[in-house]
Amino acid sequence: MRREIPLIITFVVGITLLSSYFFSGTIPGTTWVLAKVATDITGWGIIVTAFAAGLASVNLIRIHAEKIARKRQDWINSVALVVSLAVFFVVGVYVKHYPKNISMRTFSQNIFDNIYSPYGAAMFAILGFYVASASYRAFRARSFEASLLLGAAVLMMLGSAPIGVLLWNQFPIISGWLLNVVNSTGQRGINIGLAIGAFATAMRLLIGLDRGHLGSGE
């Protein structure tokens, strides 16, 4: 039962939603309108996903609370994490319940604009440095295929930056051709393959052949 019920849930939910793309009217033997049932189930899915968002936070708090309690190395950083999490959560919830409180709204926008948003941007921006370093150290034309990759990348960089046209007026034309013709060809082949693969996986999940998400054991 512990494995069968989940398989039945996946099948019933999946087949109901999939049917709604092909059929209209009521579900045979009932007065339920298929489109309405599909909309309701999708809405329920949104609610379950919202609950799932809490899982990561619960895990995060558990790990860092333990670190703080045992005063492990760098425990002060764990305090920073938990405090930061709590502030963002509490302030957000407060603003939701008291949307007319202007000072709290401003505070909420300020912590977003000056902490979360720029720190997030900085974390991702660091990759810009790594790309430069990797280009220098690892990007080598060691084989014919690697040369194709490298050549396309260099032409793309020269053609897509505004300065490319000043260096040689054919750079943008070449990079445009690479993007719209060659890249489109490769991506389309990959996409078609991906769609077939994803559809096959979806069908395996639907009929219960693929059970990886149930985990091992009972």
Partner: peptide, 23 residues
């Protein structure tokens, strides 16, 4: 920011050429 984008690209292309030449 587009001027900076251009120079950034030039730098990376130069680094790729230099790295490969050295190798």
């Amino acid at each position: 920011k587009m001027d900076a984008q251009s120079l950034g690209h030039l730098l990376i292309v130069a680094l790729i050429i230099l790295g490969n030449t050295a190798h």
